[in-house]
Design a protein around this nucleic acid. Structure first.
Lengths: 116, 116
DNA sequence: TGGCACTATATGGTAATGCCAAGTAGCTGT
DNA sequence: ACAGCTACTTGGCATTACCATATAGTGCCA
């Protein structure tokens, strides 16, 4: 029951941060969904399944943050590669700044003996 | 429209982190809701209104993470002070560890030239 | 031929949280 | 009486992560 609380909380904590990570792994090269999911799951246990990544990528495309290219694969079905647009790059820059601010804020609360 | 995307994302990013901050400010002394809201809003723009804090505190009490003490005030209505229980303290410890892991994971993604 | 595992994308329903607005109420000063 | 600050509470809305499931192509092995 205590484990449930913690598990639920970590789920909530992931919200938004997953989108940031997806945009960040795309900043240097294009990637396809399945590979992104595998990559991020290795990093931190951030992603549990592919079902979490695809809705994010769909939203990104709908919002014009990424463009897609379909490429045939020798190892299975065709891969849909995602690459950042200018708009996506601009938003990523702002998101990284916002992330840094929140991260620093939390660290401040975490280390402060007493605030104010 | 770009600003909307960013604003919406920051809202999502806050999820969970707000709970962490509330537990952290309570770790050294008891506080009342209105004061917690003011304190955290100063820190980082984490909180927009009191309506965001009170539901969190209610949940904490329901889950046995905090206990409350009603104290009369000379400056307005009585204040409901919140203090951490042992259970709350134990969960906070685990949450801080989870936060550190995710934060470091994101920093790794952020600074990596290329993962894997 | 059939079964199995891996690769790869997509979708629908559920649960949980942050946000905004509004309401209730006590106290102070004019 | 009124305005303004303090203080707590509640309800509805929008958004996202998760899980299970569906669909499908490829290669391997008996």
């Amino acid at each position: 029951m205590d484990a449930d609380l913690l598990a639920n909380w970590t789920t909530q904590m992931r919200k938004g941060l997953l989108e940031l990570c997806v945009l960040m792994v795309l900043r240097n090269r294009r990637m396809y969904g399945y590979d992104i999911a595998k990559t991020l799951s290795v990093v931190d246990g951030l992603v549990t399944g592919e079902g979490t990544i695809y809705p994010i990528l769909s939203r990104f495309k709908k919002d014009g943050l990424v463009e897609t290219t379909l490429v045939e694969s020798a190892e299975g079905p065709a891969r849909k590669y995602y690459q950042l647009t200018e708009r996506g790059r601009a938003l990523l820059t702002k998101m990284r700044a916002a992330w840094a601010a929140v991260r620093d804020g939390i660290e401040a609360v975490s280390s402060a003996e007493q605030l104010r």
